[in-house]
């Protein structure tokens, strides 16, 4: 059974349609990346899955009782709000010390429990957000441009950690990014979004799709080369790869 099935989703914001006719499914354990230019509706898609925006048409069917861990794009904590890492992880409930420690270890930041959120570096902050999303063993992890504030090595390390987490707890991951090369190397499937699904499939298929090149230019050849270089092992996933033809 699919974890998530989105059928012809339309989302309106103000007078415009941010998303139209978006259909996709997510299976247990797979890493799917949503790529797209600014304003293409990537964040809106994740927010719709979480339930933060209502669909105008179409449906989002979650597996009954689906546990979702969500890492939002931005999280500004007002300096007037004192907040230790362990208190933040527990919200909106209370957690035992061992649960907090386990989640922090999983996100690779074991020593931060008593630090103030406002004193963390960008990388530490993102990993604490990841730790919070991992609490309660989610079956689906949603990451919205989780590495925006990180430098290149930092974000590469972050995505590597994500892949390891997937292997450890077996959750599916749907993430948004525009860092093509890092994302390409860590994904089973890529969805190219621009208000609608332009094309989707394995990273290789998407990177060579004309719709993708139209959005991102032809400078992405190098991305593909990097992808091939890093993924010369076999995947045991077998997904249908197809393009949708749309006039742009």
């Amino acid at each position: 059974m699919n974890l998530l099935k989105i059928d012809r989703l339309c989302v309106r914001q103000g007078h415009g349609e941010v998303l139209h006719d978006v259909s996709l499914t997510l299976d247990p354990g797979e890493i799917v990346t949503v790529l797209g230019p600014n304003g293409s509706g990537k964040s809106t898609l994740l927010r719709a899955i979480v339930g933060a925006v209502e669909p105008a048409h179409g449906s989002i069917t979650r597996k009954p009782g689906l546990k979702i861990g969500y890492v939002p794009q931005k999280l500004h904590i007002d300096p007037s709000l004192p907040m230790t890492v362990s208190r933040f992880l527990a919200l909106p409930g209370r957690l035992s010390k061992s649960t907090v420690a386990e989640a922090l270890a999983q996100a690779d930041v074991p020593d931060l429990a008593d630090r103030q959120m406002s004193k963390l570096s960008g990388g530490q902050f993102q990993r604490v957000l990841l730790a919070r999303a991992l609490i309660g063993k989610p079956e689906l992890l949603l990451l919205d441009e989780a590495t925006q504030s990180l430098d290149q090595p930092g974000s590469a390390a972050f995505y590597k950690r994500i892949e390891e987490v997937r292997d450890e707890i077996g959750c599916a991951i749907l993430m948004v990014s525009h860092e093509l090369h890092v994302v390409m190397s860590a994904s089973d499937r890529v969805i190219c979004l621009n208000g609608h699904v332009c094309c989707h499939g394995t990273p290789e298929v998407v990177a060579s799709a004309p719709e993708y090149r139209q959005l991102f230019g032809s400078g992405t050849e190098g991305t593909l080369a990097l992808y091939r270089h890093q993924h010369d092992h076999e995947h045991d996933h077998d997904h249908d790869n197809h393009h949708h033809d749309h006039a742009h």
């Binding site: 927010r47 979480v50 339930g51 933060a52 979702i68 861990g69 969500y70 939002p72 999280l75 904590i77 709000l81 907040m83 933040f88 919200l91 909106p92 409930g93």
Partner: peptide, 18 residues
């Protein structure tokens, strides 16, 4: 706790069913 979660981030609150 619910208010605190909403104050941190409304979407995060939604994801927790608030």
């Amino acid at each position: 706790s619910a208010l605190l979660t909403v104050t941190l981030n409304p979407d995060l609150a939604r994801a927790s069913g608030i």
